[in-house]
């Protein structure tokens, strides 16, 4: 019986130690790629952050580690810590991370000047490449920055450059919407209508274009056309541009459409 208990003790000791060793090996010594993927998928968890800390300790020059670690902080609104990590990633490999940093500053912080600085620096670092920060054309994003700054002519120049580079059929449909919005702000209402119409040539269900056209027709005194287009905006509002993370600069809501529609009837 004593011998049996001793065997049990030895087996359990081996099992407990093996379990501990496997966990320690997995967290600290298994394949770096594997650990990176696990930490990436567990974004935001303390475990993920600890695994990134260990990976950074073992490979301090890997910019992707700082970048991935920063994402959770920025998503949670902890920009001081997120920015510190992202800046480190940019410092190590600016060509890879400047675009994302600019995109983040534009979309999550509406920090237009700082976003433009990053986009312009990236552009200079990659002279023969049309960059696409976080999957969007760099000139479209620069256009959004200038639109946010209310520098509408510069925004128009950027959006037109984006269309030239991407080609009419491949450009982001909201490039045309923004062109319409900029022309509207500059008081060029007929030009605004033609720009909004370019978006509708790509998709007939673009409520931002219909609302923009309705407002432009209203400015031109054509109330019937304004009413026709605002009704279309209402009909297609479900197709509006939105984003789960942040309100977009040109985002519209059903309440905007209805308020404008009612103002036409008064």
């Amino acid at each position: 019986m004593k011998k049996f208990l001793k065997i049990i003790k030895i087996v359990l000791t081996v099992l407990f130690f093996s379990y501990s060793i496997i966990i320690v090996y997995f967290v600290g010594f298994s394949s770096k790629d594997g650990r990176f993927k696990v930490a990436e998928h567990a974004q935001g968890m303390y475990l993920s952050q600890k695994m990134f800390d260990i990976l950074i300790f073992q490979n301090a020059d890997n910019s992707d580690l700082y970048f991935e670690k920063s994402v959770a902080f920025n998503k949670m609104g902890q920009y001081a810590k997120g920015s510190e990590l992202l800046d480190k990633a940019v410092q190590i490999d600016p060509k890879i991370h400047l675009g994302y940093r600019g995109w983040l500053k534009l979309r999550k912080l509406r920090s237009f000047d700082n976003a433009l600085k990053d986009f312009d620096r990236l552009d200079k670092l990659t002279p023969n490449v049309i960059d696409a920060p976080w999957g969007e054309d760099i000139d479209f994003l620069r256009g959004e920055c200038y639109y946010g700054k209310k520098e509408y002519q510069k925004a128009i120049d950027m959006f037109n450059r984006s269309i030239k580079n991407q080609k009419e059929d491949w450009a982001d449909i909201h490039t045309f919407v923004y062109l319409g919005l900029c022309e509207y702000e500059l008081g060029n209402y007929e030009k605004a209508i033609s720009e909004f119409d370019r978006a509708l040539q790509q998709s007939q269900t673009t409520p931002e274009s219909y609302l923009g056209m309705a407002k432009a027709y209203h400015k031109l005194g054509d109330i019937q056309q304004a009413k026709n287009h605002v009704s279309k905006a209402e009909e297609y509002i479900e197709s509006k541009r939105d984003d789960v993370y942040n309100e977009l600069l040109n985002e519209i809501y059903l309440s905007d459409v209805i308020a404008f529609k009612e103002s036409l009837n008064n």
Binding site: G44, M45, Y46
Partner: peptide, 15 residues
């Protein structure tokens, strides 16, 4: 100890 550490790290998030 390791199990408790993993549990804590896996159930708490930034923010």
């Amino acid at each position: 100890l390791i199990t408790c550490w993993i549990y804590y790290q896996g159930t708490h998030r930034i923010g």
